[in-house]
Design a protein around this nucleic acid. Sequence first.
DNA 1: ACATTTTATGCTCATATGGAGCATAATTAT
DNA 2: ATAATTATGCTCCATATGAGCATAAAATGT
Lengths: 344, 344
Amino acid sequence: MGSGGMAAQQTALGLSAVTVAVTNEVPRVLAVRRMTHELATPVQRGGLPVGGESALALPFGPFQPERHRTLELGLRLWVEELTGLKLRYVEQLYTFGDRFRDPREAAGGPRVVSVGYLALVHEAPLTGTGEAEWCDWYDFFPWEDWRKGRPPVIEGIVRPRLDAWVFQAADDWERRARAGRVAQCFGVDEQWDIERTLDRYELLYEARLIPEAAQDGCLADPQPVDEEAARFLGRPMALDNRRILATAMGRLRGKLRYRPLVFDLLPPSFTLLQLQRVVEALSGKRLHKQNFRRLLQAGGLVEPTGQLEATGRGRPAELFRFRREVLHERVAPGVGIPTVRVGG
Amino acid sequence: MGSGGMAAQQTALGLSAVTVAVTNEVPRVLAVRRMTHELATPVQRGGLPVGGESALALPFGPFQPERHRTLELGLRLWVEELTGLKLRYVEQLYTFGDRFRDPREAAGGPRVVSVGYLALVHEAPLTGTGEAEWCDWYDFFPWEDWRKGRPPVIEGIVRPRLDAWVFQAADDWERRARAGRVAQCFGVDEQWDIERTLDRYELLYEARLIPEAAQDGCLADPQPVDEEAARFLGRPMALDNRRILATAMGRLRGKLRYRPLVFDLLPPSFTLLQLQRVVEALSGKRLHKQNFRRLLQAGGLVEPTGQLEATGRGRPAELFRFRREVLHERVAPGVGIPTVRVGG
DNA sequence: ACATTTTATGCTCATATGGAGCATAATTAT
DNA sequence: ATAATTATGCTCCATATGAGCATAAAATGT
């Protein structure tokens, strides 16, 4: 970077990993604890932890071209080192490079550009070099889990605050634009599109209901964050890491439809109910069992192993495995998820 | 980059633009001519132009953190400088960072990591500082234009060569995998999924029917490129630029379904037939006129201006404009494209 | 043995979507 | 007038899928 030798600002290119596993019907994501002073200069940052406190962050490592033949291999390498996990499916998400992503930039630090990746693993004890931990990803997005019905936080916190935000709009066009977005993201009559996690996060962010917004050096207007609301709107993360997480969640939910990603989160053999529970955990919605199986069968995605589950009580479930051949047979092998498309 | 002062390899972060316009029913993409010696050391590169010849490349510029607040703004800035065009819609595609993307790396050059962007514009004379030119994007992908039916190059060149490639597979599992991919990408009975442009390009690349594969420093195996076939498989581009283009094409085709992107390629008012022709040009397929309009109407995407087209012959068409309000009303406003999903 | 619980399965039905085609109207060029 | 070209209304049908009813199979508990 900085081809001219001048005082050109440096660029640091790194890799961020959203590592996902599902156990006991809860989707988990890998996070590390970092001292906030590692991340930010001690400027005023609203109610965020300051000084020596720790914040959750996604594992992040520099990209080392001499070691890493590709970006993806680089990410695999150091995440596997860090955690001792074997990464299964890995996919590039998005590259984040906004000014002041990392607040240290304001103090003369380099611009930190980060290529975000989604990685799927089987959850296992962490044996690597780092001190990472598994977190329930709905702790970061409590409005995204609809498995027990519409989360109360939506009516209790989100809607009232967003309605106020709509009302505060400067002019009428802006007000209608805001109202439309709120309706699309959190409307009662509208359908809940499980894939639009990023839209919803960004709406809450813009409405200053997410504490990370306080840190945002790009936002010129001085609207303070609603700390009261923020306490109910999930665990904050360092920098823009929750945005990266929201991106990952949307991508994963979307891809479940037409790629057999779930099987990278499951053991080699599993019952159909286990499979359904994993899909439900990720998509945040309950599924209709018969229809789910109808689609699995139609897609030829699984085949029986002939064995039965080491049973609890009730009729023992048959064990299935993923039919790898389906990858050569079908164009879009995915598990059945309510499609929700095009509300109107 | 290169935080340790050692002989650590440098990383150069740049931005690549796929700038798309549609005129006269042909989708065009902006390319620059570069001397190949700017791009590659004069090593053996099969039948590719060597030495002082020129190759087409996507506009590429370094990312300058001190000037560019975000990656996207950086891209807008220098593409607008280069071309004098006003970019409408801009979207990040993917970040490319494989070793030897740029062959100069083998001679000690930096690793060139490039963030690819899709940009939509109205085609206009180029007034900027650079010497860019508009190219028909189907010149790069002749197998992607199905508007006049299945392109003869598929039966004439693609299928025979791919069938041979399937036959050459080392073992039986590999052979079946290859056969499956060929069937999915170019099968006769399978449906043609307009979005899978990248899959198809990568298949041809792996089968060594694309001359750019000759340059690929990552490919260990020494299979030569089929130059004979390559002559019929579109214009080559520098480096991995055709891969970036294929990524853009797939993304754009996909997004047409659920985002009103077409209107960023059209003048403020247009006839419904013009609109349809642009969608057809991009998707590479003919559409059923009545159904297309049925969906437009149902979606409330356009409204009549009251004026009629300055007519050629035939009944004069009414002029329409995009209804911006639809963005606040509907979740997924897109134009009707045959969905093709899930074959089987 | 029998009820209860839990899971698996088969089947039906209503609805939404969209692909395809027929028919007709409106306008201009020749 | 006739042909050509474009616009428009309407029907029909296949498919996908959301939702529900009913029943079978196996294990646990009494």
